[in-house]
Design a protein around this nucleic acid. Sequence first.
RNA 1: GCUUCGGUGGCGGAAUUGGUAGACGCGCUGGAUUCAAAAUCCAGUUCUUUCGAGAGUGUGGGUUCGAUUCCCACCCGAAGUACCA
Length: 937
Amino acid sequence: MSYNFKEVESKWQKYWSKNQVYKALNNNSLPKYYVMDMFPYPSGAGLHVGHPLGYIASDIYSRFKRHNGFNVLHPQGYDSFGLPAEQYAIQTGRHPVETTNENIKRYREQLDRLGFSFDWSREIRTSNKDYYKWTQWMFIKLYNSWYDYDSDKSKPVEELVNIFEKRGNTNINACVSDSIEFFNSEEWILFSESKKENILLCYRLAFLSEIDVNWCSKLGTVLANDEVVDGLSERGGHEVVRKKMTQWSIRISAFSERLLEGLKNIDWPDPLKEMQRNWIGKSEGALVKFDIENFEKKIEAFTTRVDTIFGVTFITLAPEHPFVSKITSKENKNKVDDYILESSKKTERDRISDVKTISGVFTGGHAIHPLTKKKLPIWISDYVLASYGTGAVMAVPCGDQRDYNFAKFFKIPIINIFKNVDISNEAYHSKDKYELINSKFLDGMNFHEATSKAIKELIKVDKGVHKVNYKLRDAVFSRQRYWGEPFPVYYKNNHPVMINEKYLPIILPDVDKYLPTEEGKPPLGNSKCWAWDIKKNKIVENSLIDNKNIFPMELNTMPGWAGSSWYFNRYMDPNNSDFFASKESLDYWREVDLYVGGSEHATGHLLYSRFWQYFLYDHNLVPVPDYAKKLINQGMILGNSAYIYRLNGSDKYFSYGLIKDKNVQAIHVDIKFVNSNNELNIDELKNWQPQFYNSKFELENNKFFVKREVEKMSKSKYNVVNPDEICDKYGADTLRLYEMFLGPIDQAKPWNTAGISGTFSFLNKFWNLFHKNDIFLINDQEPSKDELKTLHKTINKVCQDIENFSFNTAVSAFMICVNELNSLKCNNRLILKDLCILLSPFAPHICEELWSKLGYNQSISNVNYPIFNPEFVKESNIEYPVSFNGKLRFKLNLEISLNIDEIKKIILNHEKTPQYLNGKEIKKVIIVPRKIINIVC
RNA sequence: GCUUCGGUGGCGGAAUUGGUAGACGCGCUGGAUUCAAAAUCCAGUUCUUUCGAGAGUGUGGGUUCGAUUCCCACCCGAAGUACCA
C-alpha cells in the first residue's frame, strides 16, 4: 500500500498558499534569518531537475530555521531582463514582455509543485518599472560619486567640486581615468562648463569614455570581460573583436583593494574566494620611469621584479601605446605603422591562440636607463597588453622567458645578473636562491633586499615608486540591446545629463524592430518616442528634438548585472514606492544570512554585487558593507546522455558493442528512448525525427545498445530530465529527498532516475509504519527504550548534518531510522510526532499530512524542532574485546571519567581480557584517548 | 603554464580530532508471496582463496602501536585563469 502523494501534495500546497504560512513580517520580536537563492533567469526551456537543487537545500535550511524560532525571510524573484528573450523577440517579433511573462508563469508552476516555502508576496522582477526605477536611481548616484583613496570610500561629486574650487586637483588621492591634467583653483574657476564636465567625468564612478571593448557583431553588442570565454561570446559562442567605442563604464577598479580585503569577513567557499582573488589580481611591485631621447615625456613601466633593474636591455610597448607615434623614427615609420595595423586587425581570439609566434618592431627610439643612463632600444610588440599595467614593459631577458625569447629572436643583448646561473638556454625566473651580480649597489643581494633597495634608489632619483597593480578592469555598463534598463540620461551638447530622480522611472519605450537601426544605432534608436523635454520633464517624440528644450536620450541599455547587483535589498521591502527599501526594513533584515547559488557567477554577479553594496554602504544607504554572510555553491546535476553511432558516410547505425574500430560518428539521442539497460527503442526513435525513418540499425543479440556519457544537462544534448515528470511519478517529497541524497550539495553529480526508487520506498515505509490498510493506526503508550534511542540518534545526526549542509547524510540517517523503527514494529504516537517535525524540512507535504492526522490543526511549519537528549543513546561502558590484527581493542564510553592508569587496571583485570595474545604475554597497554583502546604485546 | 579542488566496490557516495573502510541508496544474486507479472518482504553482495586466511581507499615512499585521514614525490581527472610584465 502506498500513500497518495498527489492528493497530499496538492492539498498542502493549496493550504500553504491560502493561509500565507510562509509570509515573513518586517516587524517581529523573533530573531531574523534571511535565506536567499540566486534568482533565476526565466528561460523558455523551463526547469530541469538540476535547477531546483539549490532551492531545495535553501528551503530545507529555511524550514529548519523556522522550526528553531527564527523569523525567516525566504524570497524568490526573477532576473527577467536578458538576451534570450530579446533574441526570441527578434526572431518572432513578439514583445519580450509577453514571452518573459509566459516563461515566468511556467517557472512559477514548476516551482510551486516542489513545495517551496517562498514568501511569494515579496516576488520581484528586474524588468518591472517599479524595480528598475531604483536601478536607474542608483546609476544616477554612481554618476554623482567619485572615489577618495585617502578615506577609502566613495563620496558625492559636490565635495569634489568644492575641493577643485579651493585647491585644484593636485593634492587629491582619487581614482581617476589616466588622461587627467593637473590644475589649480584659479584655473578650475576659469574653465568652461564643458571642460569642467569633461574633467569631472574622469572622476565619476559611472563615466563615459572611448574604450577598447569586446564587440560581438553577431549579437550586435559589447560584452563585459566575464562574458567573453576564449575569445568567443559566452552566449552563443560568437566571435568577439576589439573595437573602440564610447561607452558607459563603472569604476569598480577603485574598489579593488576593498573587494579583496572584504573576502576575509565573509564565510564564502574558499575556491570561490580564490577565483575572486585571481580575478582582482593584485600584484605588488614598482613603477619605473624611463626618460626618452628627444621626447619630453617619460615611459612608465610596471614591474614586479624591480630587483632585476640592471638586467634591462630594452623596452617594449603595446602597439596601442600613445607614445608610439611620437618616438618612432622616420626610417622605421612604415614598418611600425604596418605592425600596428596588423595587430589591430587581430581579434582577441587570434591574439590568445597565437601565443607562440614572436613578433615586434623596433621604433628607432631610445629610452634612458634610470640608474645606468645607458640607451635602451624601444620596441613594440603585441605580447604587451595595453590594458594591463601601463602598456609598457621593462624587458629583462635574463629573468623573464618572454623577454628572453624576444631578445634571442631579434638578437638584442642579454645581460646575466645572476651569480652561477646558466642562462644560455632559458631565463632564470625564480625569485628564490639567487645572488645578484652586474648590478652595482645590488650585487650580492637576494630578492627581498634587492627589491627594497632598488625602490629606495629609484625614489631618490625620482625615477620610480612602489606600486600595487590590479588586473580588475572597470566594468563596461552599456549594452546595445533593447531588453534592459534604459539609462535615465539625455545628451545636451554631447554631454550626458542625468534626469532628475523625481521623474523616474524612465520607462523602456516600445520599438517596431529589436535589431540595431540602419545607421547601426542600438535598438532603442528605432523608437519614435525617445527624447527628453526639459520643460515638461517627460519623454516626448523624437521629431521634436531641437537641442534647446528637447534633447536626444541615451540609446544604450544597462547590462544584466545592473538589476541583480542589489536585489537582495529590495526583497526586504519590495513594494516600497518611496525608496528601494525603507530604513526600518534594512535595519531589521540587514544582510542575507545564507545565500545559495552556483559558482559560475564568481567573477560576475558575485563580484559586481559586492562592489555595488560597498558603494551603497559608503553613502549610508544600507547598514552593512557585506551583503551575504555565508554563501554555499550548489554543484551541477549532470545529465546521462545517450549516443548512437553512425558509420561515416552512410545511413547505417551500429549497436555500441559492434563498433570496434569502425569509422563512426557519435550522435545524441533523446534519453527517453533508452531504458536502464542502455537498450534503445528504435521504433520511438524513428517516430522522433524523420532522419532516422529509413536508417538501418545493426543489432547486437537482437538489441540495440547506446553509449552513455555524463555531461552537462542541456536541451541540445537531449539529456534533460523534467522535474514535472518525476513529481507525477513519485511526488515532490521523493524528488526533494532524492536530490539531496545524490551527494554533497557542492559537488557535481550525475542524475540517475533509476535510483529514485530508494527514497520513494523510504517515504512509503515511513507512511506504512503508521497505517494498516490505509487506516491511520498508532499506539498511545510510552515509547520503548529502543524506540527512543533510535529517535534521538536520528535527531542528533540530522541537526548536526543540517547545520553542516550535509543533507545527503541526513537523508541516510532518516532511512536508517525508519528501517530500525520498522524492525521494532514501532507505531508510537510520540515517536511519530517528533519524527514528523524532524523530517518536515525535507519532505514537507507528507509530514504536514501526518501532522494533521495526529490531530493538530496548525501547520507544522512553526512547531519547535525536537531536542536531542543524550540520555537515550547511552551505551554500556566496556564492550567485548575484539582481536584485530594481533591486537586487542575495547570500545569504551567516552564519558568515563577515569585516569589512564585506572583504565589500564580495569582492562587488565577485566574477565574477558586474556593474559596472552598470540602466545605472547601482554606486557604493554597503550591507551589512546579515543573510543577504542589497543593492547599491544 | 599557474591557481584551486578531487581520486574509496559494478554505480552515487559514508567514515568525528588518525582508531573495526565500504554506512545509506541504486544495481546484481538467491529466496518468500503470486496462475503470472508488478509491488512488497527476507538473505547475500570489495577482491582473491586450497575456505584457514590473504590483499585492499590512484602510484611509490615516510611518520605512527595504528593512515582513506598527516608529510614528501609522482600519475590521473575536474574547475578557474592566462603573452598579467
